[in-house]
Amino acid sequence: MTGRTPQQGFDPQRRRFLSAAAAAAGVTLAPGVTLYGVTAAGSAAARAPEDPVTSSVRWGLLVDVNKCRDGCNACVTACVEENGLRGNGRPETDAQWIRKVELRDPSTGAKRSLPLMCQHCASPPCVDVCPTGASFKRADGIVLVDKHICIGCRYCMLACPYKARSFIHEVVEDQKPYAPRGKGTVESCTFCVHRVDEGRTPACVEACAEAGGDAMTFGDLNDPNSRISKQVAAYVTDQIRPDLGLDPGVRYRNL
């Protein structure tokens, strides 16, 4: 009854084969029959509510650091509002799904400002270490915590090299209906999974565009026609700490 989805092992070879097969299917079907609807979330297949997510999609986010303004906090504010992350005025323990990080090269004085959130790793260490199976990766690459199962051991927080997760220390009230949160569990950026599932982009991406930054692009990395895929193909982009081999879904340009 409560069969869990098996973890999706990361196998680039198989993934490539699958997306090639999917593309072939799209071609062989009668012309005029659109298999893949274009959605706001970056040309991924429009999915019916009853259909499960599949690994033919891999959600990713590209941040153009040149466009990210020092002092702008629009993405963070939008995240807090969207997911109802009201804090208790204790920054040490309040939940933080996204934060602005300021970098400075001491030898030249060059400064960089960028948003940092869960990098939605393809090989997430937070999932490897979780003793309960609460920390998991969805087939479409979104890494989540199933708070029904999480025991709050915080092992995943130690394992995450990006310091992306928060533990909820205090009773939470007035949650958003689509973003359940509660005391004693760990949470992190969900790529606004509730929005993505209905074909919209994460709140931070929308807010960045509205604030005139347009520094963030969200979309399907497996779809060569998505805006994000075209950008990562055209420009050199970086993952943070690529040496760890986690293959984050979040990439940075002009870092």
Partner: peptide, 16 residues
């Protein structure tokens, strides 16, 4: 509800 929670959480099924 238990069944739905697993379907939604792990497989992204959003039936109402």
């Amino acid at each position: 509800l238990d069944h739905q929670r697993d379907e939604t959480m792990h497989r992204g099924v959003r039936t109402r």
